[in-house]
């Protein structure tokens, strides 16, 4: 069934208006629009900083607002605050009310209730509001900084005065610098600027020329040395050949050394037999020594020319 245009429009208006109405009703209920509201009166020596509609805050939550400001016959400012029923529990007889004026953001009345067991504040009692002023604190803190800034500004002023003085050091330095640059501008070359003497420049030129000659000659000498050293029949190729020859010989010598090593090893092993040989020789010598002694004995006791060998 096709829906008529009238129905669509009606549906749109009814639905949107209902959503709008419900949202507003929700806000109204949430804000305690239909709630019972209690009015408390606070006092202050000055009305400075208080405004109607100013929030009353407990633990960072808005619990009410300033409803009206009045000045009584004694010159005391009376601040009437409205607190809805559901927040009445935070307003105690010993609660402190502080006007807090932050540097950034709007001022508010802060409620401090240390003892929540205390009875609720009587609506006829008029507690006094204390003041905390971030702006004044900030000004107090900024004052020394400002003084220092003023000092700096004075110094800067003095500096600029000195700088701008035509007979001052700075201007004289500038004049000298100008003279130096003008003087330098008149010279033919950088060297002349540096030594400021034409004769010295000439002698430097001559020295440079000589240096150039020396380098030319040195260049020739190096060429010759190059030829002697690196030419086909020069020293270095020959040294190379000798080294190559020496390398061959060394390789051969390596073999000889290996042989010697072998021999020494063999000798070392032969040396092990030497001990036995030595002991044998020692035995032989001892035996011979015994024999000699015996012979001596024989020769000494018997005066015979002949003796018997064992």
């Amino acid at each position: 069934m096709p829906v008529s245009r009238d129905f669509k429009v009606g549906l749109f208006i009814v639905c949107t208006a209902a959503i709008l109405f419900l949202s507003l009703a929700y806000l109204a209920v949430g804000k305690g629009f239909f709630e019972n509201v209690h009015t408390f009166t606070l006092s202050s020596k000055s009305g400075d900083g208080f405004t109607e509609g100013m929030p009353v805050v407990f633990s960072g939550f808005n619990i009410g607002k300033v409803h009206a400001l009045e000045l009584n016959e004694k010159g005391v400012v009376l601040i009437k605050i409205k607190i809805p029923q559901r927040h009445i529990q935070w307003i105690k007889s010993d609660s402190e009310f502080i006007l807090y004026r932050p540097l950034i953001g709007s001022a508010r009345i802060v409620v401090n209730s240390e003892n929540l067991a205390s009875p609720t504040l009587d609506e006829n009692m008029i507690p006094e509001v204390m003041l905390i002023n971030d702006i004044n604190d900030a000004i107090a803190r900024i004052e020394p900084v400002l003084e220092r800034i003023i000092q700096i500004a004075e110094n800067v002023e003095q500096l600029t005065r000195v700088l701008s003085d035509p007979k001052g050091d700075f201007n004289r330095t500038l004049a000298n610098a100008e003279k130096i640059t003008a003087n330098l501008a008149g010279k033919k070359s950088l060297l002349e600027m540096a030594v400021s003497d034409e004769a010295s420049v000439k002698s430097v030129h001559e020295a440079l020329k000589k240096m150039q000659d020396i380098t030319v000659r040195l260049d020739d000498l190096l060429k010759k040395t190059d030829e002697q050293l690196y030419h086909q029949e020069g020293t270095l190729p020959q040294v190379n050949a000798i080294l190559k020859d020496l390398l061959g010989k060394l390789q051969r010598l390596d073999k000889t050394i290996d042989n010697i090593n072998q021999i020494s090893t063999d000798t070392s092993e032969g040396m092990k037999d030497f001990r036995f040989l030595r002991s044998d020789i020692d035995d032989v010598v001892n035996a011979i020594d015994g024999v000699v002694k015996k012979i001596d004995g024989i020769v000494g006791s018997k005066k015979d020319l002949e003796f018997k060998v064992p």
């Binding site: 749109f12 208006i13 949107t16 208006a17 959503i19 709008l20 949202s23």
Partner: peptide, 8 residues
């Protein structure tokens, strides 16, 4: 109505 809808 439209601005209310947008706000919601």
């Amino acid at each position: 109505l439209l601005s209310s809808l947008f706000a919601i």
